[in-house]
Each structure stands twice: as structure tokens, then as C-alpha cells.
């Protein structure tokens, strides 16, 4: 294998390229981008725009997974954050007031930070297994979101708030800039400071890390906090995009898509090495897949089945063992007798 093929982004990029190519063949104008009123329109832009919340959640999830943890509560945090922001804005006298919107956004982010810290404390302080610890908030969080919205869908009529999730900056969706900013912060924190090394070290071997003087508890707490904040921002994007908050359905099953994106991106659930850019590509693959399925008109009742098969294929392509098995089969396909001989020789 060439060093090029060994790069951790090789297979995710291949899959993404294959999906895009399929779309291009299916509908030739898939790549076309047009400009209306200074906004760019097109399927690719849509993928980036609609994929933004998932990318955000997946970035946070990557760091949690790197510490050998998992955060199931992100979907609920998405719902809570959107609900609290929309509730505050909808109760304001002037829903377009900048002060009110900034205050609401800040409140939602702070709340998700607290929720992330709750997860982190359960995991690192109380020593509960991550899957159980975050399951608590996954279940309870849906309830909290519904309490906030009073079981209704809260709608807001605020063009300023809607800008976050559906506005444009320099002809591109504003959400892309939000994602880019969070990704930059994550990359800077993990690759320009030693935090990335500490996270990987704690994920590989927490006991040895503590003995080397790393504050393993703090590292674990901080990744859950970061993950919570990412989910909170994703909740703002989602609710602002549709100008409403739905405690029941906002961010439903996001945790699973996010975990999938992390794994497709090359980060192992066993902790240790993590790849933020891989995760972003993984999330884009999932979003492209969803878009594709809608576009080619798969009947809604089998959408999930089709998605599952594609995901299965993606995972198999990425598995070294599977590729090796296929390659071995391919090599020996013309010489069945050689296999027979091999049994006696070695």
C-alpha cells in the first residue's frame, strides 16, 4: 500500500467522493450552484448547511470518544438548548432585539455547558461508566426539553434569530462559519496546546496518565463540557433554521449519527488517537447520504434500510481485515489448486 492510501483520511474521502459521483451521475446538475439575491443555492450548499449541526455535535463527540467515553445525551442537549433560546425569545416584547437574542443564545450555551459538566462529573467524579452516565441525561433531557416548551412547539418570529441558522454571510450560509469557528477552536486547543496529547494519553491508559502527572479527571470533565457546548450550539442552529423549538423531535437520534461520523472518520471507540478532520468528513458523508436518499426518491418506508446498508458498506470498506480477506480471495481466484497445495506445504 502506498503511504497515500495509509493516510487516515483516504477511505473516508473515497467514500465521500463515491457518493458525490453517484449523485452527479444520477442528476447532472447536482454540482451546479446558482446565485439569487447574493445567496448561493445548490445541493452542495444545502449539504453543508443542513449538515452543520451534525458536524458540530460530532466534533464534540470525537473528543469524548478519544477518552474512551461516549455521550448519548447530545440529542437531548440539542433539544434543550433550542427550547430555552426559543422560549426566552418568544416571551420577549421585541423578538428582534439584539440584546434579547444575544442573551438567549448565551443562556442556551451556558445551560448546555452545565449539562456537559453534569455528564463529566458523573463520569470522572462518580466513576459511572460513560454509556450509563450519559444515558441518564439522554432520557431526562427529553423530559426537560418538553417541560421548557410545555409540550408544544414554540415558534419565534425573529428574523435576527433566524439568521443564525438560515442567514448568509459573504454569500455562504452563516452556519458554515459557526462550524468553521468551532472546528478552528477545537483544532487549536487540541493540536496547538498539549490538550490533544493529554486526551489521547488518558484515552489509552488513564492510570499511567495519572502517574505521569496528568490531571485525568480534569481532562475527562473538560471533554464532556466541550461536547455539551457543541451540542448546545447545534441546537441553536437547528431551532433557528426552522424558527421553532420542538422538545420532542429536535436532535432525535443525533447521538447515533454523531458516533457514526466519529467512527467513519477513523477514531476508535477504544479511545486514544482522534481525528477531527476525519469526523467532519464522516458527518458530511452521512449528510450527503441523507440528501441522496431524498433526492433519488427512495420510498420513505425503506429510507432507513437503504441508509443502513450504505453505512454497512462504508464500515466494511474501512475495515482492514475485510479488505485483506477480499484481496486474498481476489488473488487466488484463478488458481483453486494452489489453495489445495498450500494446505500441505505450510
Amino acid at each position: 500500500m502506498s503511504p497515500f492510501m495509509k493516510h487516515h483520511l483516504f477511505w473516508p474521502l473515497c467514500v465521500l467522493a463515491a457518493l458525490l459521483l453517484f449523485n452527479l451521475c444520477y442528476s447532472p446538475d447536482f454540482f451546479s450552484i446558482t446565485i439569487h439575491d447574493g445567496h448561493l443555492y445548490g445541493s452542495l450548499i444545502d449539504i453543508l448547511n443542513f449538515g452543520a449541526p451534525l458536524i458540530l455535535v460530532a466534533i464534540g463527540m470525537t473528543l469524548v470518544v478519544a477518552t474512551k467515553g461516549i455521550d448519548l445525551s447530545v440529542g437531548s442537549i440539542v433539544a434543550i438548548s433550542g427550547a430555552i433560546a426559543c422560549l426566552r425569545i418568544s416571551s420577549g416584547a421585541d423578538q428582534n432585539s439584539m440584546g434579547l437574542i444575544l442573551g438567549s443564545v448565551l443562556l442556551a450555551v451556558l445551560l448546555s455547558l452545565v449539562l456537559g459538566a453534569w455528564n463529566g462529573l458523573l463520569v470522572s467524579g462518580a466513576g459511572i461508566q460513560p454509556i450509563i452516565a450519559t444515558l441518564i441525561l439522554m432520557v431526562a433531557g427529553r423530559g426537560i426539553a418538553q417541560l421548557i416548551t410545555g409540550g408544544q412547539i414554540i415558534t419565534v418570529t425573529s428574523s435576527n434569530y433566524a439568521y443564525i441558522g438560515s442567514g448568509s454571510l459573504a454569500a455562504l450560509p452563516f452556519s458554515i462559519f459557526v462550524v468553521a469557528l468551532v472546528l478552528m477552536i477545537a483544532l487549536l486547543l487540541t493540536r496547538r496546546t498539549a490538550l490533544g496529547l493529554f486526551i489521547e494519553s488518558v484515552g489509552c491508559n488513564p492510570a499511567a496518565s495519572s502517574m505521569s502527572g496528568i490531571r485525568a479527571h480534569w481532562v475527562i470533565l473538560s471533554v464532556y463540557v466541550f461536547c455539551g457546548v457543541c451540542a448546545g450550539i447545534a441546537g441553536l442552529l437547528l431551532s433557528s433554521n426552522v424558527s421553532s423549538a420542538d422538545g420532542n423531535n429536535a436532535g432525535l437520534w443525533y447521538e447515533l449519527d454523531a458516533i457514526l461520523a466519529v467512527v467513519i472518520g477513523g477514531t476508535s471507540l477504544n479511545g486514544g488517537r482522534f481525528y477531527l478532520t476525519g469526523t467532519v468528513i464522516g458527518a458530511l458523508i452521512i449528510q450527503t447520504l441523507t440528501t441522496t436518499i431524498y433526492m433519488i426518491g427512495v420510498p420513505p418506508e425503506i429510507t432507513l434500510v437503504v441508509k443502513a446498508f450504505v453505512v454497512l458498506a462504508v464500515c466494511l470498506i474501512q475495515s482492514d481485515a475485510f479488505r485483506a480477506a477480499i484481496a486474498a480471495r481476489w488473488k487466488s481466484r484463478h488458481y483453486p489448486a494452489e489453495k489445495e497445495m498450500g494446505r500441505h506445504v505450510s
Binding site: L197, E200, A208, S209, S212, G272
Partner: peptide
């Protein structure tokens, strides 16, 4: 194995780990 090496990290990372932990995350080597 359990309290010493960080198996999946490189030799370089294993060597600088304690010094980096002592310096703190912001004084990156």
C-alpha cells in the same frame, strides 16, 4: 504496561509526556 507506557502513542509522545504534564497544557513543547 498498566501504569507506565501509553501503548498507542509514539515513543516521542511517551518520552515528553511527564514533562508536558508538568509544564501544563498551554506551555506546549
Amino acid at each position: 504496561k498498566t501504569e507506565g507506557i501509553i501503548g498507542d502513542l509514539t515513543v516521542r509522545e511517551n518520552i515528553i509526556l511527564a514533562l508536558q504534564a508538568k509544564d501544563g497544557m498551554f506551555r506546549t513543547i
